[in-house]
């Protein structure tokens, strides 16, 4: 298992759960992952990657993995407010997009794979900045 250093991954993706340590596993949908991240961010966690994907298609994913850092030191009030706004806006947007749609469960396996790959890229990006 990959050591995830000083961050946690909030995910509902079973293949991510098996791959990394420091998992906060959510037994539920994309929306439940967003809710869990919201709770953590309101309690002072730092949002490392953006909660939403980069296209409409990714809203229909049954899986999502979001990186956070719990009780990170050095977060200014401005940053905290930014994280809170970002996760709250993301939830609002998710609800808006899914009003008439259902998660695309037929293609669950592929979404799981893409989520895992995008998470890997996000961790890579994060590490390139921190090291």
């Amino acid at each position: 298992m990959e050591n995830t250093f000083d961050y946690d991954i909030v995910t509902n993706n079973p293949s991510v759960k098996d791959k990394y340590e420091n998992i906060i596993f959510v037994d539920g949908g994309f929306k439940d992952v967003l809710f869990k991240v919201r709770d953590l961010v309101h309690n002072g966690a730092e949002l490392i990657n953006h909660p939403l994907g980069a296209s409409i298609r990714m809203f229909f994913s049954p899986y999502r993995s979001i990186i956070i850092r719990e009780k990170s030191e050095g977060n200014s009030e401005i940053n905290k407010e930014y994280y809170i706004n970002t996760i709250e806006n993301s939830i609002e947007n998710y609800n808006k997009q899914m009003e008439n749609r259902n998660p695309d469960v037929v293609n669950s396996e592929d979404y799981s794979l893409i989520d895992e790959n995008l998470l890997e890229s996000a961790i890579g990006e994060f590490k390139r900045m921190q090291n």
Partner: peptide, 11 residues
């Protein structure tokens, strides 16, 4: 680039 991390977006 449209990156995925918030720090990346700030940069």
């Amino acid at each position: 680039p449209e990156l995925t991390t918030l720090e990346g977006k700030f940069r």
